[in-house]
Structures are given as structure tokens and as C-alpha cells.
Design a protein around this nucleic acid. Structure first.
Length: 104
DNA sequence: TGTTTGACGCTCC
DNA sequence: AGGAGCGCCAAAC
């Protein structure tokens, strides 16, 4: 990963509205990483624990939480704080997926 | 340098 | 609707 794409990803995460989620592939696409969805996950994995960055708004394309424990529990809790229900370990993408084309 | 390993995604069935 | 199979991309061995 280049430092540039890493910053790109982090910038994008910062622009994701509260109460919405995005998929790894979506972020990769927006960051100019093409099909580098896995790379996005790798970048997030290297983030420090108490980071300010809203990494919890990122789930896989199916809406499932891709993080393994114990991070998974934290992510679900934080999503809950934003009124995003996580049922059966997954988020309803139909309702909560962020669409950049719809301005708030 | 070749193989394994994922915080992934799409297509088939 | 949900799982299996396969493609992808870097990093870690």
C-alpha cells in the first residue's frame, strides 16, 4: 500500500455520514484502489486502537461484519450507537449503505 | 522467490 | 436466500 492510498482511504472514511455504512470494495473503488477491497481491510487493521477514524462504518458487500473478535463486538456496539441495527452479524445494506450520489 | 493468508467480491447453482 | 467456487491484491513467511 502506498501512503497516498492510505490517506485516501482515511479521508473517505471521514466523509461517510453517521448512520450509514460502506463496503470495503466501495471504499477501494473511491480511493482509486480498483478491486483492492482486501487492501482496504489491511489498512484498517493497522489503525491504532483509540483512533478517531470511523472504521466501524465499513462492512463487506453482503453487510456482514468482516472483523474477527474482539473487534467485531466493538464495531457492532458502535454501529448500534448510530442507530444502525446489526442483526445476525449483518447490517441491512438496502437501508444503510451510503450512496455518495445522494447529498445530505 | 514461491506459498500461504486474509477486516473482500462476484458469479453460479 | 445462502453457500461453494474462484478471482484479486499485498503482506508475511
Amino acid at each position: 500500500m502506498s501512503i497516498d492510498s492510505r490517506d485516501q482511504v482515511l479521508a473517505i472514511l471521514g466523509s461517510v455520514p453517521e448512520g450509514t455504512v460502506v463496503s470495503y470494495g466501495q471504499v477501494a473503488e473511491m480511493a482509486g484502489l480498483g478491486r483492492g477491497a482486501r487492501q482496504v481491510g489491511r489498512i484498517l487493521k493497522t489503525l491504532p486502537e483509540g483512533t478517531q477514524i470511523p472504521w466501524h462504518r465499513v462492512v463487506n458487500a453482503s453487510g456482514y461484519i468482516s472483523v474477527s473478535e474482539p473487534g467485531k463486538t466493538r464495531q457492532i456496539r458502535q454501529l448500534g450507537q448510530e442507530n444502525i441495527p446489526v442483526i445476525g452479524g449483518r447490517v441491512d445494506m438496502k437501508k444503510y449503505r451510503w450512496d455518495p450520489s445522494e447529498n445530505s
